[in-house]
């Protein structure tokens, strides 16, 4: 993919550094710690430089770098696993439908009232296996195909992880919306059909 034509980065390192924000954000969300994120990203860049011959010019460098970073993360993570890697099926949870059931006008302002910090917290609560799919597809705008290659899994796996992650995310955001009073929790139960 062509970066800017006018001032093309001259060296491998310079080009790699144009993707620093993506890597740093990804590392920050995965580690949830700025110092660990910097360590991880620095190690990823050193490894990328060492293995630059394995990068095929003209392919997606951002995806390649991200793959190096997340593989390093997983190497470390497996050694000190303190949290669930994966996510139980929370069942279908559609925030839009839920808000409607609660009598909130969903689109109008519920989302606009949500604090960015709470959205980030909800993303960071996801198990890392699901978190990384959201980071790639929703935050960084990767296609399913690029996400699949980055993560080394089939596209179908990306889609199912994404689906599950979104259910959980919407559930967390709904709970936050109720707790913070953005949505007034109705006492009356919705009639079950």
């Amino acid at each position: 993919m062509a970066e800017s034509q006018s001032q093309a980065p001259t060296t491998f390192a310079e080009e790699a550094l144009t993707h620093l924000d993506t890597l740093y954000r990804g590392a920050l969300r995965l580690t949830r710690d700025p110092d660990q994120a910097q360590d991880l990203v620095q190690e990823a860049y050193l490894r990328a430089l060492r293995y630059q011959h394995s990068y095929q010019t003209g392919t997606n460098m951002k995806a390649w770098l991200f793959a190096i970073m997340r593989n390093l993360f997983w190497d470390r993570f497996k050694g000190s696993r303190k949290e669930d890697v994966s996510l139980d099926d929370v069942g279908e949870f559609v925030l839009y439908d839920k808000l409607r059931d609660e009598g909130a006008k969903p689109e109008a302002d519920v989302l606009d009232k949500m604090a960015a910090s709470e959205v980030v917290a909800a993303v960071e609560e996801l198990p890392p296996l699901h978190r990384e799919v959201v980071l790639l597809v929703d935050v960084e705008g990767f296609s399913y195909k690029d996400a699949a290659e980055t993560l080394g899994v089939p596209i179908g796996t990306v889609m199912s992880r994404l689906h599950r992650a979104r259910q959980q995310l919407q559930k967390s955001l709904f709970e936050y919306a109720v707790e913070s009073g953005i949505v007034r929790a109705s006492n009356k139960e919705m009639p079950t059909q």
């Binding site: 954000r25 920050l28 969300r29 960015a116 959205v119 993303v123 980071l135 935050v139 705008g141």
Partner: peptide, 8 residues
């Protein structure tokens, strides 16, 4: 989700 996460 994008804008909440990508300001970092």
């Amino acid at each position: 989700i994008k804008h909440s996460c990508d300001c970092d």
